[in-house]
Design a protein around this nucleic acid. Structure first.
Length: 310
DNA sequence: CAAGAGGCCTGTTAGC
DNA sequence: TGCTAACAGGCCTCTT
C-alpha cells in the first residue's frame, strides 16, 4: 500500500490531482476506499475543473486488461486528438465525453486519476496515461488492476453493455417507489444483495448499502419479497437521503492525499455502522455486528434492524 | 429468466 | 520468524 508521506514524491502528489483515498477507520478494521456513486461524483467534479477543454494528444496503455473494448490498438488510435468536452457519471461509471466518443471508466475498488506533469515519475500502479495538449498527463492508477475502460461512439453509449442494464439513479426524480416495490417483491434474494444489484438501482456499493439499511431499520438478510410496502417506501427514502447526503459531503474518505481542489470527502463522519464492528450503535447502544450476506461483509445493528418484522 | 459461481488482481493477514 | 494460503471486493461471463 502506498503511504502519504514518503518525502520525495509527496510534493508532487500534492501538486497534482489525487482524487484518491484509503480509508482507515481504526486499528481493528482498515478498509480501502471503494468508489461508489458519491465518490465517483466527487472525482467527476474535480476532474471537470481540471481537464475539460483539453485535448488528448496520445495514450499509453501499460496494463492492457484495463481496456475492455475496443482493442488496445484501436483504443489508442481513436482517442488520440479528441477533446474532452465534458465529464459525466452514470451509477459508478465515470463518462468522459470526447469530441466523437465517450470514454467509459469504472474505478472498481481502487482506481484513481492523477493529473501530473510528465516529469513526475510513474508509480508501479500507473496503468494508463493520457497525454494532454496542456503538457500534462492524466494518469490512471489502480493497485488491483480491476478498473475497466471502454471507448464507444456517443450514439452507442446507452446500448453499451455497461450502461444498458443499469437501473435508475437513486434520486427522488428517478427512483420510483412503485418500481422498487415491483423489483423487490418478486425476489428471494436478501435485500442487501438487491441494493448492490446495479440493475435494480445504480450506484450503491457495500458502504452505502449498509448505511441505507441501517437508516431504514431493515435487517440486511431479509428477503426482498418479505418486505412490506411501507418498508420498501422507507427503504426508498433512505436510499435517496443517504446518497444525497454522501454526495453533498463529497463521499467517504478517511485518509486522502491533499490536492489543489480539496476534493476529499467527509461522509466518514456520518457512517453509523460501516467499519464500526463491535462499536456502539448511535441509536440504541447495542453492539454493531459484522456478518456475511451474499459473500459481502455486512455491518448492522441487531437491535435496530430485526430479522423479523421490525 | 434469475441467481450463483468463477475469474480478474494484489496487499494484507491469518495460520502454520 | 518466515513462509504460504486465504481473503476482499465490483462487475462480467459462464453455468445451472
Amino acid at each position: 500500500m502506498e503511504t502519504a508521506g514518503t518525502t520525495q514524491n509527496n510534493k508532487d502528489q500534492e501538486a497534482g490531482l489525487f482524487l484518491a483515498s484509503f480509508i482507515e477507520f481504526n486499528t481493528k478494521e482498515r478498509v480501502e476506499n471503494m468508489p461508489e456513486l458519491p465518490e465517483v461524483e466527487n472525482v467527476r467534479n474535480g476532474l471537470k475543473q481540471l481537464i475539460v477543454g483539453k485535448r488528448i494528444t496520445g495514450a499509453r496503455v501499460l496494463w492492457p486488461n484495463i481496456i475492455k473494448d475496443p482493442s488496445v490498438t484501436e483504443f489508442k488510435q481513436r482517442i488520440e486528438g479528441q477533446e474532452i468536452k465534458d465529464i459525466r457519471r452514470r451509477g459508478k461509471f465515470l463518462l468522459f465525453v470526447l469530441s466523437r466518443d465517450v470514454l467509459i471508466s469504472h474505478l472498481r475498488m481502487e482506481g484513481k486519476y492523477r493529473l501530473e506533469g510528465p516529469e513526475v515519475p510513474l508509480t508501479k500502479h500507473t496503468h494508463v496515461i493520457f497525454e494532454l495538449d496542456s503538457k500534462e498527463e492524466l494518469r490512471y492508477l489502480d493497485v488491483r488492476k480491476f478498473g475497466k475502460m471502454s471507448l464507444v461512439e456517443k450514439a452507442d453509449l446507452d446500448e453499451h453493455p455497461s450502461m444498458r442494464s443499469l437501473g435508475p439513479e437513486p434520486t427522488d426524480d428517478t427512483l420510483e417507489t412503485i418500481y422498487l416495490i415491483k423489483a423487490l417483491k418478486k425476489t428471494e434474494r436478501p435485500v442487501k444483495a438487491c441494493l448492490l444489484d446495479q440493475k435494480i438501482v445504480a450506484g450503491i456499493g457495500n458502504i452505502y448499502a449498509d448505511e441505507i439499511l441501517y437508516d431504514a431499520y431493515i435487517h440486511p438478510e431479509r428477503k426482498g419479497k418479505e418486505l412490506n410496502e411501507d418498508e420498501i417506501k422507507r427503504l426508498r427514502d433512505s436510499i435517496i437521503s443517504i446518497m444525497n447526503r454522501a454526495v453533498e459531503k463529497g463521499g467517504t474518505t478517511i485518509r486522502t492525499y491533499a490536492n489543489a481542489y480539496g476534493a476529499e470527502g467527509s461522509y466518514q463522519e456520518c457512517l453509523a455502522v460501516y467499519g464500526r464492528t463491535e462499536e456502539v450503535c448511535p441509536r440504541c447502544q447495542h453492539t454493531i455486528r459484522k456478518i456475511k450476506v451474499g459473500q459481502r461483509g455486512t455491518h448492522y445493528c441487531p437491535q435496530c434492524q430485526k430479522a423479523g418484522r421490525e
